[in-house]
Amino acid sequence: MAGDLLDSQGRGEAQWGLPAIHPEGRKFGIAALGISLLFAFFAWETLAWPMAFLSLGILAFFRDPERVVPQDENAIVSPADGRIVQIAEVAPPRELIADDGTGSACLTDEPVVRVSIFMSVTDVHINRTPIAGMVQRLVYVPGQFLNAELDKASDENERQHILIQRSDGLCVGFTQIAGLIARRIVPFVKPGDTLGVGQRVGLIRFGSRVDVYLPKNTGSKVVLGQKVVAGETIIAELGTQPLLEGVSQ
C-alpha cells in the first residue's frame, strides 16, 4: 500500500496488514523474548511468561503502521497519535524564534495557537511532520521528566524542537516532549533534510507529548479530548479559525 494514491471518491485499494515494527524497537523486543526463552529453558515459568508478554508489549509499542496522508497544501496534519489535552494561544519557544544566523525569521514571538497531543503507552509513538518542507532547525533541550499532560512540561521537560519551512516561507514548529516514563527522544531527520507531509521524523520512548505551533491566523480544527492520528488527522487549515464544539458521549 505504501505510495498508493487513494481518494475521497473511492479510487485506490485499501488493504489491511500487520504493522511493521520499527528497527529502534526490535532489539528491545528480541532481548526480552530471549530472556523469556532462557527462563523457559530453566523451567522458571513464573518468570518466563511475564517476560514473553513483555516482549509482545514492547513490539506493539514500536509498531509503525502505514498512514494515508492528505495531499492538501492548506492542511496541517497531526504529528502524533494521541489525545488533544491542551489548546492555547502562546508564544513559540525561544529555541524556534531565536536568531540562528541564517537571517530567516521564520517564527516570531507573537502568540499563536498551540495544540498539545498526549501519547499514552498504547499509542503509536512514531512522529510525523505536519507539513512538507525543509527541516530548518532541530534543537534538543535536556530537562526534567514531569507528567507530560502538565502545562509546564512544555518548558521544563526534556524536549526536542523541530522547525519545518515550506518553499513559500511558511513555517510550522513542533516539539517532542519526554514524559514520566519516556527517557529518550530519537530523531530520524537532521537540519537541511527535505520532507514530505506526514513523513516520519522521530519517536519518543514510552509515553510523551507533542506540541504543535500553528501559523499566525490559523486555528485548531480539533477539540479537547479528541483522538488524533499522526499523518492522517487534519488539525488545522491555513488561514482559518473555526469554532468547533464537541460533546463527550
Rank of each mutant, 00 (worst) to 15 (best):
G246S: 15
N157P: 08
G196R: 11
L203V: 02
G239H: 14
G57D: 07
D4M: 14
E45H: 12
Q199R: 15
S104W: 12
G29K: 03
V197W: 01
V85T: 12
Q226K: 14
L5K: 15
V139L: 07
P142A: 12
V112R: 09
D155H: 13
G225P: 02
V201W: 02
E245W: 07
G198L: 10
V77W: 05
Q15I: 12
P70C: 08
L138E: 06
P70R: 07
V112C: 07
F62N: 02
G246E: 11
I76R: 04
P93C: 10
H125C: 10
N127P: 11
R209Q: 15
L5C: 11
H125V: 10
F206T: 01
Q9A: 12
P215H: 07
G196D: 10
Q199E: 15
L38H: 01
R94G: 00
V121T: 13
E89N: 15
G169E: 13
D100M: 00
T194Q: 13
K227V: 13
G169L: 13
V69E: 01
E158R: 09
I177N: 07
S167W: 00
V189W: 01
W49N: 01
W44P: 00
I185K: 06
G34W: 10
F28T: 00
R128P: 04
D168V: 03
R11V: 02
R205Y: 00
W16N: 13
V139H: 12
P242I: 09
E66Q: 14
A14M: 08
G179H: 05
V69D: 00
I204P: 03
G192A: 09
I131S: 00
D151F: 04
M119H: 02
C171F: 13
A75F: 06
P187R: 09
G57F: 12
A48W: 06
P50C: 08
L18D: 11
Y213W: 08
K27F: 13
Q241T: 15
V68W: 13
V228L: 11
N217S: 09
I21H: 05
E73Q: 12
E110Q: 14
M134L: 07
N127W: 09
N217R: 11
I164L: 15
I126E: 03
V228C: 11
A32P: 04
I177R: 08
G3M: 03
F145Y: 14
L238V: 15
P19W: 06
R183A: 06
N147T: 06
A2E: 14
I164N: 01
P111T: 10
G82F: 04
S208M: 06
N74S: 08
L47Q: 06
V189A: 00
V222K: 14
G101I: 06
G25M: 05
I126Q: 05
W16E: 13
I235D: 02
N127A: 11
L138C: 04
F118S: 06
A2D: 11
E45T: 10
P187Q: 08
C106F: 01
I76Y: 05
